[in-house]
């Protein structure tokens, strides 16, 4: 019997070699690459258009990624718990329209915002509730709810713009110390809250368990349904806050407000290292993912790219980055195709 020279010597792979370098590994590959990409894009854009590095532009970027960051924070919770909600964009549209209509009709800003946020929470909960009661994956029920939310928003606004210029600008327009946008500070708050939940609370640990292996979690005394409902409620809450910030900054709402943000949010979360199959991920990744979206969008503006081309670029970018993150997670894992099927559902 001849020996094959390619054979690895026995003993390799057990014990020391498999020691846990996972966090370092992730850091080395995904997050580090993300930061690198962000720097590169920034530098290139800066060279093409020096205005990119002006303070006003940096503030502009921070302001623009605020809403996406808030929504993505909630989406991170949802995706880790093994669920997804692609109706967040439509949800923003509906709740911001409701807020705008209420403010317009003379109801105070505060009660309007509270009502809008409550509505967003309820809408998000509905997605989870139908997914669970009808035993359907949440991407399908949320798909259906896009029509429902948009339809209702169209019906109550009769398709027209709801403008509230000058009536609720505090949140969207304030700049702390004349520099730091309040909206960005709110988004930082969202990241922090989610980080705190994920790292330090019982609910956070449960989200990971439920997303990773619901059967094992259930047998260990964790209520899978309750945990997922909470994830939907939190996501809805962040969607509500996001609509509030958005409305306050733009000063107007229409049914299509927020449409398309779902893809950007999912993209940001997954680029940040949270797999769509759930059970893993950290908020720092999401933050970097959101930042990437913001920088690219701004860079495209700076380079005066036609807005429709920007749309095309974004679609391509999101698909490409998801593909990359899937490849990198495949590397160390001998996974069968089943895991991709799981990722779909």
């Amino acid at each position: 019997m001849q020996t094959n020279p390619n054979v690895k010597p026995p003993g390799v792979g057990s014990g020391t070699l498999v020691k846990n370098n996972k966090y370092q590994l992730i850091f080395r590959s995904q997050w580090f690459l993300l930061l690198l990409a962000e720097f590169l894009i920034a530098i290139i854009t800066g060279i093409v258009n020096p205005r990119f590095f002006t303070i006003s532009n940096v503030i502009n970027v921070l302001e623009q990624i605020a809403v996406l960051g808030i929504v993505s924070s909630g989406m991170t919770l949802l995706i880790i718990s093994g669920e997804i909600d692609i109706s967040v964009g439509a949800n923003i549209g509906l709740s911001s329209c409701v807020m705008a209509i209420m403010i317009k009709s003379g109801i105070g800003v505060f009660p309007s915002f509270v009502t809008g946020i409550a509505l967003a929470i309820f809408s998000s909960f509905l997605v989870g509730l139908t997914a669970h009661t009808f035993k359907a994956p949440s991407f399908i029920t949320s798909l259906a709810f896009i029509s429902v939310f948009q339809g209702i928003a169209l019906a109550i606004t009769k398709g027209s713009f709801q403008t509230i210029y000058g009536q609720a600008e505090t949140i969207g327009m304030t700049r702390l110390g004349n520099v730091l946008p309040l909206s960005f500070v709110i988004s930082l708050g969202a990241y922090l809250v989610v980080h705190f939940i994920l790292a330090y609370t019982k609910f956070g640990r449960r989200i990971y368990s439920v997303g990773s292996n619901p059967a094992a979690a259930y047998l260990s005394g964790i209520s899978v349904i309750k945990t997922k409902y909470y994830a939907f409620l939190f996501s809805g809450f962040f969607v509500g806050i996001g609509s509030m910030v958005l409305l306050s900054r733009i000063g107007a709402a229409q049914p299509s407000t927020g449409s398309g943000i779902e893809l950007k949010a999912i993209g940001a979360v997954v680029i940040g290292g949270t797999p769509l199959s759930g059970g893993k991920g950290r908020i720092i990744g999401t933050l970097l993912g959101v930042l990437l979206m913001g920088i690219i969008s701004n860079a495209l503006n700076m380079m005066r790219v036609n807005p429709y081309y920007q749309q095309v670029t974004f679609g391509l970018l999101i698909i490409a980055s998801l593909a990359m993150s899937i490849f990198s997670s495949y590397k160390g894992h001998a996974r069968s195709e089943k895991s991709t099927k799981k990722a779909i559902e």
């Binding site: 609370t201 019982k202 640990r205 292996n213 059967a215 094992a216 979690a217 047998l219």
Partner: peptide, 29 residues
């Protein structure tokens, strides 16, 4: 493997599964 453990999580997190309630007063772990 399918119902007892979460294979792609750490020993510690697996230990935490049924014990998390006891180990997190006021929801903090």
């Amino acid at each position: 493997k399918t119902e007892g453990l979460i294979l792609d999580q750490s020993l510690r997190n697996n230990y935490g599964l049924p014990n998390i309630n006891r180990l997190s007063p006021f929801g903090m772990v």
